[in-house]
Computed example of a mutant assay.
Amino acid sequence: MLESSLEFLRCVRCCSKLELIVFKSEREILEGMLECKKCNSKYPIIEKIPIMWDNFSKYLSLRKKLGGQIYGLIENSTLKQFCKISLSNVKKIDDDRTDLEERWSKIYQNSKSSKFYSHMKKSIDFVKKSNLVLEYGCSIGIMTSFLAQSHDMVFGIDRSFTALRIAKKLYKNNLDYVVADFLSPVFGKSKFDLVLALNVLELVEPLKLLNYISKQIDTGHFIITDPYDFDRGINSVKNPLNEKSLRTNLEKFGFKIASKTKSPSHITWELKLNPRAKLNYDVDLIICKK
């Protein structure tokens, strides 16, 4: 974590400013703790990544295997004890997301050369230099690292600690990542000049995400893509959107859609699942602004 990121991060329980305790640092903070003095919440910084979950034990409950891995990575005794206590409070849940998140991190690594990303980079090039940029569902940081080349400060947010460990291998002094739920107020009332949400509407209730992002932009651009593949079984969102309803709701939230993306698009997004299997999506792109 960059020490400068402290200016933007807020307690996800009460939105108060946080105090930073550093256990180990080099160019950035390798191990540490973010503490809220108002509600006594604590957020660990592990392997350069702040885990901004309202309950660390709850985060590990769905990733018990990851919890053991994290415990083995920690060097500082205070942080290790915090992790140990958190693991002892983990509730037994059959669904462990660790292997799934590891698998998808590898898939994104293997798919970095997909034409989808080059298309997106060209689509974003027109946006003038921004002070503050945020990407939802940044995963291994393909787009965030690109954005950091031309914007002042860029943040990526994702639920996968595994993916962000890969993203953090590339150091830039204007690029940082946070493990957090998309709808948590991890950045408080900060306003962003550019927000990306690429292919994430299946992971969170779409209208809630659009409403939340709308409040994060006073004047700026919002770029969103999606293949509208909402079939996730019991994990499916309750109110999916399609090409038309997504555009209609963006306009309701005060966004003006760029003329070139008013009609649905079909951008190929190829994902290499393994040496013998590929997954191809036709992705819709919308560029809009306030």
Rank of each mutant, 00 (worst) to 15 (best):
R165N: 06
Q216C: 05
D193F: 01
T261P: 06
I166G: 08
N55L: 13
E135C: 11
V204A: 03
P185G: 05
P275L: 13
D218W: 14
L66D: 08
F82R: 01
D96P: 01
I93H: 03
P264E: 10
T248C: 11
R247V: 02
L30T: 01
E3T: 10
S16R: 07
N174D: 00
V195G: 02
N40C: 12
N239Y: 13
L194S: 08
I223S: 08
I49R: 05
T225N: 10
F222V: 00
M143G: 01
R276V: 13
A277F: 13
T98N: 00
Y59V: 02
K262Q: 15
R276W: 12
K215P: 05
N89T: 06
K112D: 10
L273W: 02
F82D: 11
L30S: 04
S263M: 12
Y177I: 02
E202Y: 07
C14E: 12
Y108T: 03
Y117R: 03
R247Y: 08
V133E: 11
T248G: 06
L134T: 04
Q81C: 11
E270D: 14
E26I: 01
W269V: 00
L73M: 14
T144G: 04
S145Q: 11
D54S: 13
R103F: 05
I287A: 02
S88T: 07
R13F: 07
Y281G: 07
I286D: 01
K191N: 15
K122D: 14
L203A: 15
K169S: 11
I157M: 12
C36G: 08
K290G: 03
S160L: 06
N274Y: 11
E47S: 15
K122S: 15
N174F: 09
K129G: 09
I157H: 00
I21T: 06
I166E: 02
L285K: 03
K252L: 14
E26T: 03
K252H: 14
S111A: 12
A180I: 02
I213V: 15
L250E: 03
K168F: 06
R10T: 06
T268E: 15
K42Q: 14
P185M: 10
E270R: 15
D96A: 01
F146A: 03
I49L: 05
M153A: 10
S105M: 09
S16P: 11
V200M: 09
S114F: 10
V178K: 04
I29D: 08
D152F: 05
L183K: 04
C39M: 14
K106A: 09
S160V: 00
E3P: 10
I51Q: 04
L273F: 12
P275A: 13
N280Y: 13
L132M: 02
